[in-house]
Nucleic acid binder design. Structure first.
Length: 437
RNA sequence: CGGAGCGUAGCGCAGUCUGGUAGCGCACCAGUCUGGGGGACUGGGGGUCGUGGGUUCGAAUCCCGCCGCUCCGACCA
């Protein structure tokens, strides 16, 4: 993508409404544009990142055996009356009336709808287990939206729903998602710690929040440093291996980790002082096992092996995809701007032509641009070097291929790693090889 | 939902108290010089001052209503 033709606007100054760093950087780097309180338009750079994050989430859901669907944003109030939540959900639910005076709502979550869909097709216990998910926009009419996309009213969420015949099977489904989440966050380059959570209004008796550590996080967290030490995501490779998954799960969840509302000071103090970690975090995922709460209320049942009806056990599993973009920036930035992890970077590299119109720099830049294709932005604008450096740093591409007249004359480009600031002078071929990883 | 603020050019702001031809910086456009970390100079364009009403000879400024947005606190992917 040539910057001279791209819609990738950056701002030198920060709009007044942004108070936290991720929000400031998202506005300055041109990722999003606020259209109403807590509602954002995603501009090309932000949209690319959102899609990269979605794709990683999707791949890990698929790997764990979940199947993707797409449910609508608008739902009928009727479904929510069946579960009893229509009156209970409160003002966070955006309620709508259509032209026929039917009560509708913009979905804040999809337990009712997925239960309705599943009950239409599940004919016997043989049709279980199943896990269905979608990545769709949700709306929760927060009293006080803030922090940009971290706490918006409209947000992109991955929500999965599992159906099982027995409680044991449902807990296995829960553990599958537990490890899928660890893997997902690891691939995103985030350190996410699972913490036992209150089950809240969704109900049930087993729940974990996944908290990304960041100084600007909204909740205080306490955890065992053992979480930092090991690759827990890699401890389980076969999602169908029930005993392995259970022992892995037991091992991870045995370690102390809690948000302030669930904090047990005595248990925490029992850890050796050097293993105690306190900090702040952002909730990016939340998983629940809630048994037959919705299946019972909504009349989902299937014939069991003995022919008698069985009410399936369910769980739901959410990841705040758009929030993750904010969390990623909170966890990866410096004074100059964003530092994207390679896995989610909108482009792997920026090609900086320091002297537009110079035959040698133009030629090398064109060569790099052609070779990297959609993985790079080519800053071919008639701007001074400083502007190009500042914008590339701000937008946070992992690599900068800096092409100036001095090096270009010798066929050399300067490759800068955004995360470390390290620079090396290499040949064009070597630069391409490194950018491609 | 309790408390506190703010709406003036794309962005950041002054002007409002004390009414009198709407300003500054950045950004933008043209030109010249410059050319490895947001450069300099010259010239230029851009505003129903959120909105509706009221007071007044005259309203960005005073009064009333409405709309939008933000911050602090209690709640949430």
């Amino acid at each position: 993508m040539r910057l001279s033709r791209a819609f990738l606007p950056t701002l030198k100054e920060t709009p007044a409404e942004a108070t936290i760093v991720s929000h400031r950087l998202m506005l300055r780097a041109g990722l999003v544009r606020q259209t109403s309180a807590g509602i954002y338009a995603w501009l090309p750079l932000g949209w690319r990142v959102l899609q990269r994050v979605s794709q990683i989430v999707r791949e890990e859901q698929d790997r764990a055996g979940a199947q993707e669907v797409l449910m609508p944003t608008i739902q009928s109030a009727e479904l929510w009356r069946q579960s009893g939540r229509y009156d209970g959900y409160g003002k966070e639910m955006l309620r709508l009336i259509d032209r026929h005076d039917r009560e509708m709502l913009y979905g804040p979550t999809n337990e009712e709808m997925i239960t309705d869909i599943f009950r239409s097709y599940a004919k016997s216990y043989r049709d279980l287990p199943r896990n269905l998910y979608h990545i769709q926009w949700k709306f929760r009419d927060e009293v006080r939206p803030r922090f940009g996309v971290m706490r918006g009213r409209e947000f992109l969420m991955k929500d999965a729903y599992s159906f099982d015949i027995t409680a044991e099977a449902a807990q296995h489904a829960y553990r599958q998602m537990f490890f899928a989440y660890l893997r997902t966050f690891q691939r995103l380059g985030l350190k996410a710690v699972p913490m036992r959570a209150d089950t809240g209004p969704i109900g049930g008796n087993l729940s974990h929040e996944f908290i990304v550590l960041a100084e600007t996080g909204e909740s205080a967290v306490f955890f065992d440093s053992a979480f930092e030490a090991s690759d827990w995501a890699g401890t389980v490779t076969d999602y169908d291996d029930i005993p392995a998954l259970k022992s892995g799960f037991d091992q991870v969840t045995a370690m102390y980790a809690a948000t302030d509302e669930m904090h047990d000071a005595a248990a925490f103090e029992a850890l050796p002082a050097e293993r105690r970690r306190e900090g702040r975090g952002i909730e990016v995922g939340h998983i629940f096992y809630f048994g037959t709460k919705y299946s019972a209320a909504m009349g989902l049942s299937v014939p069991g092996q003995d022919g008698k009806p069985v009410i399936p056990e369910m769980g739901s599993y959410g990841i705040g995809v758009s929030r993750l973009v904010g969390a990623l920036i909170e966890a990866n930035h410096d004074e100059a701007g964003i530092i994207w992890p390679d896995s989610v970077a909108p482009y792997a590299a920026a090609i900086l032509n320091l002297k537009q119109g110079d035959a040698s720099t133009d030629a090398i830049c064109e060569q790099l641009h052609t070779a990297l294709g959609d993985n790079a932005v080519y800053d071919d604008r008639a701007e001074r070097a400083g502007v190009k450096f500042a914008d590339a740093d701000l937008m946070g591409f992992p690599w900068q291929a800096i092409v100036g007249p001095r090096g270009a004359a010798n066929g050399v480009v300067e490759l800068k790693r955004r995360a470390t600031g390290e620079r090396v002078e290499v040949s064009v071929e070597e630069a391409l090889a490194r950018i491609r990883g």
